[in-house]
């Protein structure tokens, strides 16, 4: 099953957030699961239309996902997914 990892920055808002494995075919599947376990968390990652926020990055392995609008990048069973913050701000 794909494994999902998070930037430690999200633990400020979700202190119990931990890496986990999930049966998921796409990145979108992961986000649906996230909101069940951590209510409101997907709001931190995508806007109300489901698009990845501008300053959030999701990697599959070491590659950025391609579909930042529909989050339909396909996952393999051994993939590691990293939900990260972009480097921005000041």
């Amino acid at each position: 099953m794909p494994k999902v990892n998070f930037t430690s920055a999200l633990r400020r808002f979700y202190p119990d957030l931990k890496p986990f494995e999930i049966e998921a075919k796409t990145v979108s599947d992961i986000l649906k699961h996230l909101n069940q376990n951590y209510p409101g968390l997907t709001d931190y990652l995508v806007d109300e239309q489901g698009r990845l926020r501008q300053h959030v990055n999701i990697f599959i392995g070491d590659k950025l996902i391609k579909d930042k609008i529909g989050l339909q990048d396909v996952l393999s069973k051994d993939d590691e997914v990293y939900i990260m913050q972009a480097l921005s701000g000041g």
Binding site: A9, R53, V56
Partner: peptide, 8 residues
């Protein structure tokens, strides 16, 4: 106005 995580 989170820089990364949207409006809360």
């Amino acid at each position: 106005d989170h820089g990364h995580w949207g409006q809360k």
